[in-house]
């Protein structure tokens, strides 16, 4: 690494810059779009020069969508709130059940443990549409269609396997001796789980939680079928911008910016734990 030439460093820098540009450009473009009116967005050829306007954001916060032809009520902020409830709720539930389950799968080899773990993973293989139809009818019978409870339950299909499998790997990476040592020191199995396994797997739990949150946040199909207007998350709510009189690109862009903001904030916050996880990798010391 020491005798790397300057040229090599430059090329590496340029390559990295290109990759960053490639992945960041759509987000950057959306940000620009959210500050423009539909006319400037649709102008050809597109230009980066425009006078920025906050009218899109104003419309979203006011809850009224004014277009040339008509004005329409939207409840984007309500959708945003739904997204938060659904994502936080389902990740919370998934952590509550998934983390202890992951620990059990990692540490105790019981009859059929691999089969159960695999079955849970296989929920991720099945296309959601496959389960949606029967689910809709079940939910109506049970009376939990169109409730937060029912949606969070269905979201476990997304969150639980993810958390279970990621966190299980982290638990397995903790040397068994460290846990043995704590038990021999006189602590019961639950204290060992709480004081040794949980703190040492925390980076993994944070990563899995973050990932599950993003998946839950981005989910479209479950909410589209099972939720009515007042329970819809942003992904479904964004459909409202596709109106009979045209597509409100500016507002969609503003909505997108607003809806990625919470995930972005969460990712930045969780980054601390993710990095900590990398540096704590030398558990075997």
């Amino acid at each position: 690494m020491q005798h790397q030439s300057v040229l090599e460093n430059w090329l590496r820098g340029i390559a990295l810059a290109l990759i960053v540009l490639f992945f960041m450009f759509p987000i950057f473009w959306i940000l620009l779009m959210s500050l423009q009116t539909n006319e400037t967005i649709l102008r050809s050829p597109p230009s980066m020069v425009f006078s920025p306007t906050l009218s899109n954001y104003q419309a979203i916060f006011a809850g009224r969508l004014d277009s040339n032809a008509a004005s329409l009520d939207i409840r984007f902020l309500g959708n945003l709130w739904n997204s938060i409830i659904l994502s936080v709720g389902s990740v919370g539930v998934a952590l509550l059940f998934g983390v202890p389950a992951a620990y059990a799968f990692a540490r105790y080899k019981f009859r059929g443990s691999e089969d159960i773990a695999f079955t849970l993973l296989s929920f991720r293989f099945a296309p959601p549409l496959l389960v949606l139809l029967p689910l809709t009818s079940y939910f109506q019978t049970l009376g939990i269609a169109d409730t937060y409870f029912g949606l969070i339950w269905v979201y476990q299909l997304i969150c639980l396997p993810l958390i279970l499998w990621i966190v299980r790997g982290y638990f397995e990476d903790i040397p068994a001796d460290v846990e043995h040592a704590y038990r021999i020191a006189g602590h019961g199995w639950f204290a060992t789980f709480r004081n040794i396994a949980l703190p040492l797997a925390r980076p993994g739990i944070a990563a899995a939680g973050l990932l599950a949150f993003i998946f839950a946040w981005n989910n479209f199909i479950f909410a589209l079928v099972l939720a009515s207007a007042d329970k819809q998350p942003v992904t479904v709510g964004a459909l409202a911008f596709v109106t009979a009189s045209g597509i409100q690109y500016g507002q969609i862009a503003a909505a997108v910016v607003l809806s990625i903001a919470p995930t972005l904030a969460l990712a930045l916050y969780a980054q601390r734990y993710l990095v900590e996880g990398l540096s704590l990798g030398a558990v075997k010391g």
């Binding site: 040397p175 001796d177 460290v178 043995h180 040592a181 704590y182 040794i196 040492l200 704590l280 030398a282 558990v283 075997k284 010391g285």
Partner: peptide, 8 residues
């Protein structure tokens, strides 16, 4: 323990 097994 041989590998110490300290709580990191």
């Amino acid at each position: 323990f041989q590998n110490f097994a300290l709580f990191p």
